[in-house]
Amino acid sequence: MPGLHHLDIWIAHPDDLTDWIWLLTRLGWTTEAEWPGGSTFTAGGAYISVTTTPNTIDAPHDRRRPGVNHLAFEGGAPAEVDRLMTDAPAHGWGPLYVDRYPHAGGPQHYAGWLENTAGFKVEVVAD
């Protein structure tokens, strides 16, 4: 059966976890487990773990390098995406493509793009 089972996001500093906790719970993900420096969130049969680990190399995250560029999440109705975009900067997520919001992905695509201080990019797509 196709679908995403889980995703592990490694962060450099435990302080970066706060950004992810706010975003994922705001988007309706449920906290499944917590430990010092990490949390696991569940939704729709999949889970996302966000954690520090001693196995990371000492280099900043760069979404423009080969690998994952960004994660796209379902954001609900356009008004919900608008509220999230308004609230996000107070929680560590800065808006991207402000001059083209909410149609940076094209005229039929209503979404907001955010980046946290660690350089992780997410897209929040309206229904």
Rank of each mutant, 00 (worst) to 15 (best):
H109M: 08
A77H: 10
W113S: 05
N116I: 09
W113R: 04
A104T: 10
A118K: 09
V81C: 02
R83V: 08
A104I: 07
P95V: 10
R83C: 02
A90V: 09
M85A: 05
A77V: 02
G105N: 12
D87R: 03
T86A: 11
N69K: 12
V81S: 03
G75R: 01
F73A: 04
Q108L: 11
A77I: 04
G119S: 08
L114D: 01
P78T: 03
G119W: 07
F120R: 12
L96N: 10
G94T: 14
Y110F: 08
M85K: 04
L96H: 04
R100L: 12
G76C: 03
G112H: 01
E115S: 14
R100K: 13
G119V: 09
A90G: 11
G76Y: 00
L84D: 02
G105W: 03
T117L: 14
E74V: 11
H70V: 05
D87C: 03
F73T: 01
H109V: 11
F73H: 05
T117H: 14
H70E: 12
D99Y: 00
F73K: 03
T86D: 10
G75H: 01
Y110G: 00
A77W: 03
G94S: 15
W113P: 00
H70D: 11
E74N: 15
L114N: 06
E115P: 04
P78R: 00
E74D: 15
Y97K: 10
V68P: 07
A104Q: 13
P102I: 02
V68N: 13
V98M: 06
G105K: 02
D82I: 01
L114Q: 05
A88C: 12
G76H: 03
L96R: 13
D82L: 00
H109S: 11
T117V: 12
N116G: 12
E80F: 01
A72R: 11
V81N: 01
G94N: 14
V68M: 15
A88H: 03
G106D: 05
D87I: 01
L84F: 05
E115H: 13
A79W: 03
A72V: 13
G92K: 11
G106M: 04
N116W: 09
M85Y: 03
E74A: 15
D87W: 00
